[in-house]
Design a protein around this nucleic acid. Structure first.
Length: 256
DNA sequence: TAGGCCATCTGGTCCT
DNA sequence: AGGACCAGATGGCCTA
């Protein structure tokens, strides 16, 4: 259930937490104590939160204690829900990472959340563009020129074995993708060799023009959800269809 | 040691 | 009213 526990993260999800089964959720005694201390300080500062530390006051009536317990239970419930929500979100992110063009494995540090989202966006853009490119290719092959179809048999003979097919530049690019991965940008040491069918690397998606880290650090890139590439329509749903040329694929970089 | 990343708590807001 | 969602705050861990 705990996505972090199942992930390859080297850190525990909450080192400070203990499992309190009686409460049905995680809660840290240390944190609660710290919280109560903080609560006192905050109240002293005149900006205290709602009183929810049952043991805080000097003399509480039974009703006060009951109310405090209720508030605390409610708080624990809300916290548990929020925790679960965030775990679900992290699970979804993990699922996204699994299909990302990024070296995976226990020895590879996993993509940060923001990196995952940005990389996913670029990946989708590249795949969309690849699809358009392939469609165009298929159209060229099967659509043919009218003159040619008139002067010769319209039957098209395609080389059966793919080994004899001259690779389209796009396909060549796709094949050349295997090798470098974005992890190299995180780790100076060479990443583990990717699987033969591993998806395109981040470097292919333009990250070789600007390292991922610097890209992600750049507030300009983070601020602009949609980048408008020269000669290319904006990929956002409000704008036009995606570009189709292989050369423009190389422009799919978050930076430059 | 500073900075990045993350998990968690919390209060506010919106929705059902 | 209860739950989902969001953003700010806080503190821990890790790396350069």
């Amino acid at each position: 259930m705990d996505s972090d526990a199942g992930s390859n993260s080297s850190r525990s999800s909450s080192p400070d937490l203990v499992v309190d089964d009686s409460m049905g959720s995680f809660f840290s005694n240390k944190m609660f104590q710290a919280y109560c201390q903080e609560e006192g300080a905050a109240r002293a500062a005149g900006q205290g939160r709602v009183d929810r530390c049952a043991g805080g006051g000097k003399s509480k009536t039974r009703a006060d204690l009951k109310e405090g317990d209720d508030v605390q239970d409610l708080r624990l419930k809300v916290n548990g829900r929020e925790r679960k929500r965030m775990h679900d979100l992290n699970q979804a992110l993990d699922g996204l990472r699994e299909v990302m063009p990024y070296a995976q494995g226990p020895s590879v540090r996993k993509l940060s959340k923001i990196s995952t989202l940005l990389l996913a966006r670029n990946y989708i853009l590249m795949l969309s563009s690849s699809l358009e490119e392939m469609k165009k290719l298929v159209g060229d092959v099967y659509g043919g020129s009218g003159a040619q179809s008139r002067t010769s048999h319209p039957r098209i003979t395609l080389p059966a074995p793919t080994a004899h097919l001259p690779l389209h530049p796009l396909a060549q690019n796709l094949h050349s993708l295997v090798g470098s991965t974005a992890s190299a940008l995180h780790h100076p040491s060479p990443p583990p060799a990717p699987a033969p069918h591993s998806p395109p690397s981040a470097s292919y998606m333009g990250f070789h023009h600007a390292p991922v880290q610097s890209l992600l650090k750049d507030p300009l890139h983070l601020a602009s959800s949609y980048r408008h590439f020269p000669g290319m329509p904006c990929p956002c749903s409000l704008c036009q269809p995606l570009p189709t040329t292989a050369s423009t694929l190389h422009s799919f970089s978050m930076g430059k």
